[in-house]
Simulated scan of single mutants.
Amino acid sequence: MKYFAVLLPMKEADKSRDFRPQHLAFLEKMRNSGHVAANGKFADGSGGLVIYKAPSFEACEALVITDPYIVEGARRYEIFEWEAVWAEEAP
């Protein structure tokens, strides 16, 4: 399984606010199903970062494009394959 860092830069602040509950529910579902290792928003309000686990770029993108933030046009996305190095106590 590969890791992908997915940046979600702000596109429309109003839509981001309106669809935040659906986005957070989506991320919880993705974490619980093992597709997301971590997620969080940037403190400056410019967007967020999601670390996906997927077998390929295409498989990751197939998940990303179902995020309500993307579906509703609230955020853009950028996907980077990430060769993670974990501390011993991290997943």
Rank of each mutant, 00 (worst) to 15 (best):
G47I: 01
A43H: 04
M1N: 09
D67S: 10
R76D: 14
K15S: 07
G48S: 10
V64M: 04
L24I: 08
G34E: 12
M30I: 01
P9Q: 06
N32G: 12
M1I: 07
V64E: 07
P91W: 10
Q22E: 14
V36R: 11
F57E: 12
E28I: 12
W86I: 01
D44K: 08
F42N: 10
Y52L: 07
A74S: 10
D18M: 12
R20T: 04
I65Q: 03
N39F: 13
E28Q: 14
K11R: 15
A43G: 08
R17K: 15
K15T: 02
A62T: 07
D44G: 07
N39L: 03
R20M: 12
E12Y: 02
V36W: 11
R17G: 00
S56E: 05
S46T: 11
A43E: 13
W86H: 15
A74H: 01
K15Y: 07
E58F: 02
R75C: 05
A13L: 14
L8E: 02
A38G: 06
G40S: 03
E12D: 15
V64I: 12
E81P: 14
A25G: 04
F80Q: 13
K41E: 11
K29Q: 15
L24M: 14
L49Y: 01
A37F: 06
E12T: 03
R75M: 08
V64K: 04
A38Y: 00
Y3I: 01
C60T: 09
K11E: 02
T66P: 05
P9Y: 04
G47N: 01
R20C: 04
K53R: 15
E88Y: 06
W82G: 06
E83K: 15
A59R: 11
G73Y: 04
V36I: 13
D14I: 10
R76L: 10
